[in-house]
Every structure is written in structure tokens, then in C-alpha cells.
Amino acid sequence: MTTESSNARKLTLYVAGQTPKSLTAIANLKKITEEHMPGQYEIEVIDLRENPKLAKEHSIVAIPTLVRSLPVPIRRIIGDLSDVEKVLVSLKVQGE
């Protein structure tokens, strides 16, 4: 875990307004990244209600959607991220 932190890693969370599901997802993501992978990921939260054009551009259907755009392959997780173990498994980078 010495070199990975220098590699580009990006997570984008798509939400729509301040709905309970969106807020839960934001809180869960924050908690997971802080506890299990501090400083490894660059995190961006996009509110599609403010910027609906991005939904089409980024092919978002379900809300909330978490997209790990880097490193490849792209991973998508939908849901409020309430199961920490599953989230970690899904975000696990091969070779780690």
C-alpha cells in the first residue's frame, strides 16, 4: 500500500437532491472511505437535480449511483451503500 496512493483513483457519487437515500449514501461513502481507505480516493458528489444533463452524459439511471472511474475497469454500485463489506469487495482493486 505504498505506491497505490500516488495512483489516480476517483469515486463519483451521483445523487438527486437531499433525499433520505442520497443523504444515507453520502454518509455511508464518507464513513467507508475514511475508515477503510483514508486518502486513497478522490471523491466527488454530483447532484443531478442541479445538473440533470450529466445523467444522460454519464448514463445514470438509478439513484444513488457510485462510479469508480479510476482505476479501470469502471465499477458501478447502485444503492445507499448500506453494506460496508459488499462495498469494499466491489471497490477492491485487483492485485491488492
Binding site: 433525499t19 437515500k21 440533470p52 444522460k56 454500485i77 444503492g79 451503500l81
Partner: peptide, 28 residues
């Protein structure tokens, strides 16, 4: 045209979700 393309292979479902993204795209 609004092409809704979903690849279930690169998708994991964890927790509760809805299809608000579809609604937003349709609305736009």
C-alpha cells in the same frame, strides 16, 4: 431520443435505490 443503456455486468446493487436518474433524464 433517450437511450437508456444499462450493463448489468458492471453493476452491483448494495442497499436501497430508485430510478430518479431515469426520471431526470426524461424530464430534461
Amino acid at each position: 431520443f433517450e437511450h437508456i443503456e444499462i450493463d448489468p455486468n458492471e453493476l452491483a446493487e448494495i442497499g436501497d435505490y430508485d430510478l430518479e436518474g431515469l426520471f431526470l433524464r426524461l424530464e430534461l
